[in-house]
């Protein structure tokens, strides 16, 4: 075997890795935020009294769940110029990632809402809370607790999915691995380094949500 794992060989490329990691991070954060907003909208659609709106919401979720993210990215990337928009690859990637993730966010939020019993709304109404107050003090805290775990998983999923942006010319970490690997022929080292970056990001999210959870949630052990 003529290959020795030597990390030193890719030191010159670590500078670019910094920029790539930043792209991965910003890509992920933007997409998480946007997909939460769009997902919330879709979740509301699915609880609408109008059959058409409910069907639209369901269709959205099903499309995103069953179509590969790569195909969605290609469609947005290539559709941009057709629609007259000059979409940068980064923008196309964010849009694609967000729209896809929104489908999953909608399901997570819907599960959280369904878990709230109707009686909560009634008690809040009877006590005179306005819609906004009801949502802020009574509904949101409960929904948040229910969706906390799946939300954390979805955040990790988005970070990993951001790797597909490399296919539409975004120079994030996966693209760095490819480029650096092909120029230096040190694919093992670049793979290990890229893997470490993603591992660190995911573990940070895990630690973060554990810590936050301990801070926020103290509902006590159930009697029953």
């Amino acid at each position: 075997m003529g290959y020795t794992f030597t990390l030193r060989t890719i030191y010159p490329y670590l500078g670019e890795l910094g920029h790539a990691a930043w792209l991965t991070l910003s890509l992920s954060l933007l997409s998480i935020g946007l997909s939460l907003i769009v997902g919330a909208g879709v979740a509301v659609l699915r609880r609408s009294r109008s059959r058409l709106l409910r069907a639209l919401g369901t269709a959205y979720v099903e499309v995103m769940r069953n179509t590969p993210l790569l195909v969605i990215l290609y469609i947005i990337y290539f559709a941009g110029p057709g629609l007259g928009l000059r979409l940068s690859s980064f923008a196309a990637a964010v849009i694609g990632l967000s729209l896809n993730s929104a489908g999953y966010m909608a399901e997570i939020l819907r599960a959280g809402l369904i878990a709230i019993s109707a009686g909560q709304f009634e008690a809040a109404d009877a006590q005179g809370f306005s819609r906004l107050q009801t949502f802020r003090y009574i509904i949101f805290p409960q929904v948040f607790r229910t969706i906390y775990a799946p939300l954390g998983n979805q955040i990790i999923a988005v970070i990993l999915a951001s790797s597909l942006a490399s296919a539409v010319a975004v120079d994030e970490v996966t693209a760095w691995m490819q480029t650096t690997g092909s120029t230096s022929f040190r694919f093992f080292e670049t793979f290990v380094v890229a893997a470490i970056v993603y591992l660190v990001l995911c573990q940070l999210v895990n630690l973060g949500r554990l810590a936050l959870g301990r801070l926020l949630f103290r509902q006590g052990e159930s009697l029953r």
Partner: peptide, 21 residues
Amino acid sequence: RSVPILIVMFFCYFGVPLVFG
């Protein structure tokens, strides 16, 4: 569960021939 499948695929296709011959 913590790494994207794409980099694993890249490694399998480009890295393995290089490393293992």
